[in-house]
Computed example of a mutant assay.
Amino acid sequence: MWRNIVSNFLTLLIVILIGLGGLVAWAKRQYVDPGPLAEAMCLRVAPGASIQAVSKDLASRGAVSNAYIFRTGAQYEEKAGKLKFGSYLIEPKTSMQQIVDQITSGGPSTCGTELVFRVGVNGNDVLLRELDPTTGDYQKVAEYNPETEKPPEGFEEKADRADVRTRVTIVDGVTSWQIVEGLKEASFLSGKIDGVPAEGSLAPDSYEVKRGADRQALVDLMKNRQSSILAAAWDGRAEGLPYDSPEQALIMASIVEKETGVPSERAQVASVFINRLEKGMKLQTDPTVIYGVTDGKGVLGRGLRQSELRKATPYNTYVIDGLPPTPIANPGKAAIEAALHPDSTDYLFFVADGSGGHAFASTIEEHNRNVAKWRELEKQRQDGSSAN
Rank of each mutant, 00 (worst) to 15 (best):
N122A: 13
T110K: 08
G106H: 15
P152I: 05
R118V: 11
T110P: 03
K150P: 07
E143R: 09
E143C: 13
V126Q: 01
L128M: 03
G120H: 07
P151S: 02
A159N: 03
D160F: 08
F117G: 00
S105P: 11
L128Y: 00
P133S: 07
L131S: 10
E157H: 01
A162S: 15
Q139T: 15
P146Q: 07
Y144K: 04
V126P: 01
D160P: 09
P152D: 05
T110L: 08
S105A: 15
T104F: 15
T113P: 09
Y138M: 05
F155E: 01
L128R: 01
N122V: 13
E156G: 10
N124Y: 04
E157A: 04
D160W: 04
S109W: 04
E157P: 02
E153T: 05
T134A: 15
E156T: 13
F155I: 02
F155R: 00
N124L: 05
N124F: 05
R118K: 10
L128N: 04
A162Q: 14
C111E: 12
Y144G: 04
N145Q: 08
L128P: 04
V121I: 13
K150L: 12
E143P: 03
T110E: 05
G106C: 15
Y144H: 07
K140M: 15
E149Y: 09
T110G: 11
G112M: 11
T134M: 14
D160H: 06
L127E: 12
K150F: 09
G136P: 06
K140C: 11
E143N: 10
E153I: 08
E157S: 02
L127I: 05
G112W: 03
F155K: 00
V116I: 08
E149C: 12
Y144T: 03
A159K: 01
R118M: 08
F117E: 07
Y144V: 10
V119K: 00
R118N: 12
P133V: 11
F117H: 03
T148R: 03
N124K: 06
I103P: 10
V121A: 09
P146Y: 05
Q139P: 08
F117N: 00
I103H: 05
T104G: 11
P151G: 03
T113I: 12
L115P: 00
E130N: 13
G106I: 14
K150H: 06
Y138V: 01
C111D: 12
K140L: 13
P133C: 14
F117Q: 01
A162R: 14
I103F: 12
P151N: 07
Y144I: 06
P108A: 03
T135E: 02
G120R: 01
E149R: 11
E153Q: 05
S105Y: 13
E156H: 02
P133H: 08
D125C: 10
S109Y: 02
P146K: 02
K150A: 14
V141P: 09
S105N: 14
T148G: 11
A159F: 00
Q139H: 15
K158C: 03
E114G: 01
N122S: 15
G123V: 03
A159M: 04
G112P: 10
E153R: 01
E114M: 11
E153M: 07
V126A: 00
E130L: 14
